[in-house]
Design a protein around this nucleic acid. Structure first.
Lengths: 155, 155
DNA sequence: CTGATTGCAAATATTTTGCAGGGCC
DNA sequence: GGCCCTGCAAAATATTTGCAATCAG
């Protein structure tokens, strides 16, 4: 789809600019890592998985560098580092626009992770920050349960 | 406080019964682990931290056993295993009554973890399960931000 | 008694760090 | 040249597993 290519390009430019602005170099390894993350926007890749895909594009890349890059990109808020509780950190490109939150539905049956894109927590955040005087910067909301298709299969 | 002792005792009995019902043996190691978890209900201990406290009560306990016990107790829904994203699993006694949820406020400054006890997500869960046909079993909600006292210090 | 449970040590898994070398400005 | 960045190997951290010995029921 052409429009996807365009979106992809503008996303790409935005991120390159951001790196540049922060005085970090755009090395082939970082480029490959960013590409992988953009291409797998919905996949919640682990560091190891990112590494394997990066190696396809830039075979000499070391695992340590991938870790360092993922760290760096998280620092810059280009990535979100998430932890679903399985002991592996996962990474995904942060959506543009600070308040564009999304949440995760994890199926206890098939293990699939789905995203939902609404910000459901406006009211809740309001309540929490007033009541507990807590200045909210970010939130993580994960639902564990049974996904639609697994429910159907169980019948 | 006398009432605390009574609460503690009834909690203790309930858990012993649960283990027995499921045909698991109540070994000194498991007893010590449970005690530690009850005594530190609010502390979000890591496996290592549980281990250190268990050793005070039962010095010959091995770390592997603590891991195995924590796993077992999580299986039985006696504990919740939580992951705040720092690479360490943490454990806490599950409150009696399935729907007594609580959430966590993590301060990005001092690292303190506070709990809030309301169930804020009734409406949100309603929305999600209808809209995505997702059968919710549990949820995790974590807020990252700046706690009250750190906000004051920054002024 | 007998299988469940344990401690210990070794194995895994994940992530971080030290360091010497390479490349960009 | 100076410094950022890299790969590699080793270290650090967190957790799991194999196995012979032990213990709870």
């Amino acid at each position: 789809m052409e429009s996807e290519a365009i979106i992809w390009q503008s996303e790409w430019k935005r991120l390159k600019k951001k790196l540049h602005r922060e005085k970090y170099k755009l090395t082939p390894q970082r480029e490959a890592t960013l590409q992988v993350l953009i291409e797998n926007e919905k996949s919640h890749l682990s560091a190891e998985e990112v590494y394997l895909r990066v190696k396809e594009k830039a075979p000499d890349t070391g695992l340590a560098t991938v870790y360092r890059t993922l760290d760096l990109l998280s620092e810059l808020d280009i990535l979100d580092k998430i932890n679903f509780g399985d002991g592996v950190a996962r990474y995904e490109i942060r959506q543009e626009g600070a308040k564009h939150f999304h949440h995760h539905l994890i199926c206890l049956d098939c293990g699939e992770v789905n995203e939902i894109q609404e910000d459901l927590l406006m009211d809740v955040e309001e309540k929490v920050s007033t009541k507990y005087h807590f200045l909210i910067k970010d939130h993580r909301l994960i639902f564990h349960g049974i996904c639609d298709s697994c429910q159907k299969q169980q019948k």
